[in-house]
């Protein structure tokens, strides 16, 4: 019985591994980089409000990314640990400290930082010169990373909830390098745009 279970496990791994490994090796910047620390200037537009500051993303271990958002002039606003299956709040400025806001930040930055690629790759789909890699990003949420053109780097992606796109995002790389120089995420169901530029 045990041998049979081991055999089944090996077969499942053998079947899943190529897709997972293919996608992970292509994920940009933070996720695979040896220099996993990223300091960005951040700009968030929500409806008519505007916020700017500094964002620090640091890979703590294979399954945890720490996110710290500061205002330029001083205090820390948000400090989260992003994990493939959830997040932990280490600090949140009172105005931001509600479950819905923090959940949105987790999903958006989790998608940008690539933390959901630690979850199971559910689908790999190739069309012409683009390949899409789908990962679970929550109960009803999935994140899809797409390679762009001949570079075969992940250059864009989308967060999908049910059948609709909730947010679209893209990466810009430093020329001749695998390092992400900027990222942008735009929500599709309400006005919220996150722009990150590496410092």
């Amino acid at each position: 019985m045990m041998r049979f279970l081991r055999l089944i496990s090996c077969m499942i791994l053998f079947w899943l591994a190529p897709g997972i490994l293919a996608a992970q090796s292509l994920l940009p910047g933070l996720y695979n980089s040896t220099d996993s620390l990223g300091l960005y200037s951040i700009d968030i537009e929500i409806n008519s409000s505007h916020f700017s500051g500094l964002l620090l993303l640091k890979k703590m271990n294979d399954s945890t990314i720490r996110l710290v958002m500061n205002s330029e002039m001083g205090p820390k606003l948000v400090d989260l640990e992003l994990m493939p299956s959830g997040f932990r709040v280490l600090y949140a400025f009172p105005k931001l400290n509600n479950r819905r806001t923090l959940r949105i930040l987790y999903e958006d930055f989790g998608a940008l930082a690539g933390i959901f690629a630690r979850n199971r790759c559910t689908k790999v789909e190739t069309r012409q010169d683009t390949t899409d890699y789908s990962y679970v990003a929550g109960k009803k949420m999935k994140v899809i990373y797409s390679t762009g053109g001949s570079s075969q780097k992940i250059s864009s992606g989308r967060l999908e909830e049910g059948k609709g796109a909730r947010a679209l995002f893209c990466y810009v790389f430093t020329p001749g390098s695998d390092q992400v120089s900027s990222m942008k995420l735009e929500h599709q169901q309400f006005r919220m745009i996150i722009s990150l530029t590496r410092i």
Binding site: S41, D43, S49, H50, S52, L54, E72, M73, S195, T197, I199
Partner: peptide, 25 residues
């Protein structure tokens, strides 16, 4: 340095300008 950010307070008006855009509240 190392990033550009401008904060102006003119009485009750605050204007912020970074590399991306300018906003006034």
């Amino acid at each position: 340095k190392p990033y550009t950010f401008l904060f102006i307070m003119d009485n009750d008006r605050v204007t912020i300008k970074n590399s991306q855009q300018t906003s006034s509240v």
